[in-house]
Design a protein around this nucleic acid. Structure first.
Lengths: 335, 335
DNA sequence: TTGTAAGCGTTATCAT
DNA sequence: ATGATAACGCTTACAA
């Protein structure tokens, strides 16, 4: 079966190719009669425009990329749904790319995307990303970028984040009010902007409640689960914290493992809370207190910002949106 | 900054456009000297081939699509990683599309993909999918398709699945040996091939152990979590099963909720197991016995099959691979 | 309202 | 070993 092209339609209808093209694009300069005829035949023959030809000619692909650091996380999958809802609604395709928390993979993806000529990019940085050098080609080529959740300082891109400082502050206060006075902070990644804000919120809460922040109570961790468990065990045994604040979900999971291995019970011996969008946190043993980020909304807003940029091309008008998280209090922080 | 094209390179080098093209593609008919000059300038000017032009001309995009029913599931994200590993290694891009368990969305995606001219498709059906009518265009257009995990009968596509019948049989035997004799089966979806096999394995085990299968002990559920919880509560109260076999992960989660609400303890009052790749199942209350599918390997194998088809074009040589699952025994099925 | 001509950036065919 | 020419399928100026 041959592919139906405009040429084929034109031949069968005794019209020129441009006329058929314009008819299908509902141009004002084509008579209703012709439009009807063209559409009828197109439908009958199941005509499908060739997107490569169209993109080549128009120099845009109606496709945006969503670059996320981790695919098996509820947070990012909710983001994805929010993005797709908005994008599909406006006729855009979304291609999802995962950096696996690696700066090398992120850089490679970014190169591919530039080559691939997506119209715009939504990106949340990998754990290893510390600056925006690898994104400068987007600025040069005037490809709009919106950063979300994990942003980068000093880059001319709009962003959508959640109120990390405030939610972290509130969560820390919750621990303090539940009689914790030696609260450890499990930090993730090299220099992630959102984690830094969470750290600041935690430190400020300690200060405000006369528990002075202590760098010895900050433990920096990476991706490897087994390694994290070991480090957390040693940290607990050495520093004897009465609570741990996990800055990302999987560090809480590692803490559950660590506690099991050294026979500590949560929350009796150690209280625990974490940033997490896992709705099954309520079935953990014990149920985990979580700070839940507005993931779907972050996705929606990011996509909306990006699509506006695509429409207006005012790349210099930078907007920074912030949406509130919510805390679900559960047994892991109970007295 | 203008985009660098072959024309630009050709002009600067006093060569023709085709020569430059051939040099960059390392054609045997170009002298090493010319190749070196061309590559040097291309590098210097950071030349990037326009993929639309190339795809238009060559009629292939070096892109495959991965269509999955659900994105926030560990199973499918592991699949994704396996697919990407293989595909990227061979220079293919992967675009991920999520049907959200809806046949309408799946059909729409499939249309888009045909329009988008991906070179091939990897697909796992939505919960609502019952046949392969919407995939027939792929057959007509000779676009290779490989189905995985959730397949479709009577379609001329290769497939990669796990040993659903056998693993389900083994899991059921495990329950029987732990003194269950009224085992309910929580079925998911309209007519999913993998679930049907799981059901058969369960029924055969009952038969072999002289517990005759009883259709009253099969409960069919859909996507909505709250609705599922209600149905499971009523099912438990009416049928008084001593164990539940959840054919997919989220039905186990709903069962945890149901039990909590009607004050039943797992495993004392009710044993529970499920197909699930959640590694945090070990931190549930109680830890959940899971049948773990070889997700990463399924992804790898599916991609490998598809890329072979793309190379050989022997679309009529259908292969059906099967990879074994493993069972992790935990407290939810203990005596 | 419609048609003609040109061009997007590649690659394939044929000639030199 | 290299160049001229055409073609992939579509859209946009310009002409009629």
């Amino acid at each position: 079966m041959k592919n139906i092209t405009l040429k084929e339609l034109a031949k069968q209808l005794n019209l020129s190719v441009p006329t058929v093209s314009r008819a299908l694009n509902d141009s004002y300069e084509i008579s209703q009669e012709t439009k009807d005829k063209v559409n009828a035949l197109a439908q009958e023959l199941n005509y499908r425009p060739n997107p490569f030809a169209s993109s080549l000619r128009k120099n845009r692909s109606k496709t945006i990329a969503l670059v996320i650091p981790e695919i098996s996380s509820v947070f990012f999958s909710q983001i994805t749904k929010g993005v797709e809802a908005v994008a599909n609604n406006k006729g855009y395709h979304v291609i999802i790319c995962c950096s696996d928390e690696k700066i090398d993979k992120e850089t490679e993806i970014v190169q591919h995307l530039i080559d691939g000529r997506v119209d715009g990019i939504l990106l949340s940085t990998s754990a290893e990303t510390t600056d925006g050098k690898h994104l400068e080609s987007f600025v040069e080529r005037k490809i709009p970028v919106v950063l979300f959740d994990r942003t980068i300082e000093n880059m001319p891109f709009s962003s959508v984040t959640s109120n990390d400082y405030e939610s972290s502050y509130a969560a820390t206060v919750h621990l303090i009010e539940n009689n914790c006075n030696s609260i450890g902070f499990l930090k993730f990644g090299k220099n992630l902007q959102n984690i830094e804000k969470r750290l600041k919120g935690y430190q400020q809460a300690l200060t405000d409640y006369n528990l002075k922040p202590n760098n010895n109570l900050i433990l920096t961790l990476e991706q490897d689960a087994d390694e994290n468990i070991e480090k957390i065990k040693r940290f607990i045994l050495n520093k004897k914290p009465d609570a741990l604040f996990a800055s990302v979900e999987h560090l809480a999971m590692a803490t559950y493992d660590a506690c099991k291995q050294i026979d500590l019970t949560i929350p009796n011996n150690l209280k625990l809370l974490a940033y997490s969008n896992l709705n099954i946190a309520r079935h953990f043993s014990p149920p985990l207190t979580t700070i839940v980020q507005p993931a779907y909304e972050i996705g929606e807003s990011s996509a909306t910002l990006l699509l506006n940029l695509l429409k207006n091309k005012h790349l210099d008008e930078i907007e920074d949106l912030m949406i509130d998280s919510e805390i679900s209090f559960r047994a892991s922080t109970e007295n």
